[in-house]
Design a protein around this nucleic acid. Structure first.
Lengths: 197, 197, 197, 197
DNA sequence: AATGAATGAGGATTCATTCAT
DNA sequence: GATGAATGAATCCTCATTCAT
């Protein structure tokens, strides 16, 4: 029919342009939390609600669901890349950062699962891209004799395996299980921590 | 009013009973197919449709979504238990049957992931129960010196790890990855096959 | 995330299977009214609301917007076809029935406007189909010497012209204008009436 | 604080004024294009975007959706009025200009349809006003014996009829149909062209 | 006077779940 | 016992309109 006459009632403040950056940040934070808790399938409205903004704001900043996920996970992946690029980076240290993100965010695990599996709902194309970036960052620092350097696929299969092991309600428990997984693989891992500097 | 002069005696709704069993079986089969194809989030209506029954029938047999999943997976778990109970069962053989189900059904992987993780959508409490049964079946045949017998958790963490590795569009690819995962763990696995009889 | 737990509150009656036909009829009636009033772009929710049913019912009976429109307009077009097939049908009489529907429903006018114009939003493909049926029904009874038999396009251009003239708040006014339009075209029209028998 | 030693005197926001006019013109042009392409229901944001201004500017110049449409169409109607006022204007020539606008702009057709028809979405009251101006411009040059001079309403009904006939994806096709329509009405039309100067 | 961010209503569509027949 | 219709909540997405800067 026609349009939306907007009920004219009271309109809860327009904090103006300054709020834009704040809102984007709030959205990113909210998305990170919501994704961590519910995974990549979480409703976008939940993210907007937790960020304390209207749905339209979310769509202004991110054109679609993929954009939100990419923005969040891009930061996670970026940390791993920076960890790899850092001076004196070794594979154990980078795996420590990787493991940190695995224990933090369900969504991050989802993309590592994604691996080559496009097509299944909830594991969309952008996940492969991000997964690929993680692989490159790791492989660049994988020494020749390393346990995971034998076969082509071993590296990412191992990462997926650890992702599979990371479950549990608390971060501590997830970290415990992640470390157990690496140990079962016979792979040494550095301190589990973010690389935010 | 309309008398039905059947064979000799009036069979008291025995027909209904038999139809009920038939429906239940059809639902289980349908659910297995639908879950394998779409995952645990598949609409229940799709299951009823594929089973060729009304939705009400589904609800008669299974009070809620969890009950459907449980019933399906119960059959999977049952096979593993029977494999374990079979004469001459060894851990490698049982793991082969387990691996078969991992490569067959996305849903089955979900419950093994579930482990202790309640709260995440689609991985509710009942999964723990099933997961526990798998664990008992395996542990009963785990020899003392086995690679996974060292620490309490190692067995199921390893299973979860393999589940994490199992991705890909074709069953062949999933089997390939599963075997690669077991190899990385240094665990020997028997032939990957169902235990249907 | 998960599903819709449905608030459990009170559920406003389920009138059972018998209501199905009644509801479909109510939907068709409602759609006819809403379309007549607002045209083909009317919100589907308005139709469901006027029919007194939930939105889901509408989607059960009609898979998409096109199906609703087709169902409604199919009946209109069908009347014209039946008028053409009736014993002793002549072009003036058929045009009278056509004109009746033009004065009744904005949506019907929309499809005649549609003519060959697919692509524009709100004038979708099915409109062309319906428009084509109207054309065939009319042309079959168009005598050789008829005013609109000269050029290929003249017939449907004339129909579109009359559609263009049919505006106004009351049906009476619309009929008045329709007749004026036919008169300006020098085309004789029979009684303006439905052909419901 | 920061003094601006411009040319000689301080021009009091004359710059702002000029920019405002420029913006208004840009909006009118943009709206014309957008309306021609998407029809009267096009989002206002699209118009602002194409004009290269913020949405606020649009609302400054035009209080509501109707005002935008009016402004655009006002220019079209103005051309017809100027054509009518031009030296040596005759009804055929004026109809040629009218027809030009009918073939150019979907929106323009809408207002001629509108005629007396308020209530339908997108064809609000202001359309009547514009339609009335077109009528006056035409009627002033309608000779007594003209085909459309017989009955009071005939003139605008004929215009609406031609509007109804004007459909099709290309301007050429629309012009072809418009001319066919006038021919069916037995009305002579001058060259189909704008009257821009 | 311009900008463009934010709000939030509206409409589409999908399903879980109940219940008359 | 089975059927399948109905309900309605939830999610997605799009825009009109306001307003701080």
């Amino acid at each position: 029919m026609t349009q939306q006459p907007t009920s004219d009632e009271r309109r809860p403040a327009n904090e103006g342009r300054k709020a834009a950056d704040r809102n984007r940040a709030a959205l990113v934070t909210a998305a990170r939390e919501v994704y961590a808790e519910y995974g990549l399938d979480a409703p976008l409205s939940a993210i907007a609600r937790r960020a304390g903004v209207g749905q339209g704001v979310l769509y202004r900043h991110f054109p679609d669901r993929a954009a939100v996920a990419t923005a969040i996970l891009d930061e996670n992946v970026g940390q791993i890349e920076r960890a790899a690029a850092a001076q004196g980076a070794d594979i154990a240290g980078i795996l420590g950062v990787l493991t940190w993100h695995q224990t933090q965010s369900t969504a991050f695990i989802d993309i590592l699962h994604a691996d080559g599996a496009a097509g299944r709902s909830g594991i969309p194309a952008y996940a492969s891209t991000l997964s690929g970036r993680v692989e490159r960052a790791l492989r660049a620092h994988l020494p020749d004799g390393h346990r995971l350097a034998a076969a082509e696929d071993d590296l990412m299969i191992a990462v997926a395996m650890v992702s599979g092991a990371v479950t549990g309600p608390t971060r501590e428990q997830r970290e415990h299980r992640a470390l157990a997984a690496w140990r079962l693989l016979g792979v040494e891992v550095g301190p589990v921590r973010p690389f935010d500097r």
